[in-house]
């Protein structure tokens, strides 16, 4: 068995006196696209933020690339952090920087590539996310929602991560843009062999992208399997989430496509 890229071990989270998670275990093997679903308030985004170390779980441990997230020296942690990247829901682009500077920023910080190489790498990332070179000079405030997502993706890919975490990648996009963004993520995932973890509410996105689905409910991972297998699980939340009329339409659409 291959070592998991990301694993959660007995993760528990408490906000005040309220346990959000209790003993969450999850192993994400390399090359998979895992969708994390759950009702609102079930702590999906919290879990995602714990995976990247923005939040510390009350109990339990997050391991990335088979090492604890916070193990080792500063330099070792920095090296480890370079191997994964996250796209935030609102893009989280640096609003004082142009698109070019936003994508170049992590490369400059890494200090490996020369300035001329950075120019070309930025151009390359822009073509990868299907943006035009002329967009490089724009400020984040001048971009549309779909473009912000693409620039955020380009910035996340700048350091060639092996693991990509996406928080609501298609939230706030119209269906056409959403579909093309999903196609883009899928193509890039296949080309680059990324492991992807995403949180989503959107069943179209879920059905089109994920190779595995993790259902978060009742403070733990209820099921973690392929979409078809998860849908067979007999649990009220899963039944309601996947088998409602609206969901059935979305899933049928995705399978037809």
């Amino acid at each position: 068995m291959t070592t998991p890229v990301l694993s959660l071990r007995g993760l528990s989270t408490r906000f005040g006196s309220n346990w959000v998670h209790k003993g969450v275990d999850l192993d994400i093997p390399p090359g998979e696209v895992v969708s994390l679903v759950g009702g609102s308030g079930s702590g999906k985004t919290t879990l995602l933020r714990q995976m990247v170390g923005l939040l510390t779980p009350t109990e339990g441990e997050v391991r990335v690339f088979d090492e604890p997230l916070f193990a080792g020296s500063r330099e070792a942690q920095r090296q480890r952090r370079r191997r994964f990247a996250m796209c935030f829901q609102g893009g989280a682009l640096f609003s004082a920087f142009t698109v070019y500077e936003n994508i170049a920023f992590p490369l400059r910080e890494a200090g490996i590539a020369t300035e001329a190489e950075i120019r070309e790498l930025v151009a390359l990332k822009l073509t990868m996310v299907e943006l035009l070179p002329s967009h490089a000079a724009l400020m984040p405030a001048e971009l549309s929602g779909g473009m912000i997502k693409r620039v955020a993706l380009a910035r996340a890919l700048a350091l060639e991560p092996e693991l990509l975490l996406l928080d609501e990648p298609t939230a706030g996009l119209d269906p056409t843009r959403s579909a093309s963004f999903v196609a883009l993520i899928r193509d890039l995932q296949q080309q680059l062999g990324l492991t992807v973890v995403l949180v989503t509410h959107d069943l179209d996105t879920l059905a089109a992208l994920s190779s595995k689905v993790a259902v978060l409910a009742e403070r733990r991972i209820l099921a973690f399997d392929s979409l078809e297998a998860v849908m067979q699980v007999d649990h009220p939340f899963i039944q309601e989430f996947f088998l409602s009329e609206r969901s059935a339409r979305a899933l049928a659409r995705a399978q037809g496509a």
């Binding site: 070019y100 120019r119 070309e120 930025v122 151009a123 390359l124 822009l126 073509t127 990868m128 035009l132 070179p133 002329s134 490089a136 000079a137």
Partner: peptide
């Protein structure tokens, strides 16, 4: 192929 495509559309210099 991507690099070749990128060369045809370089980022304009400020």
């Amino acid at each position: 192929e991507r690099l070749a495509a990128m060369d045809e559309a370089p980022v304009p210099r400020p």
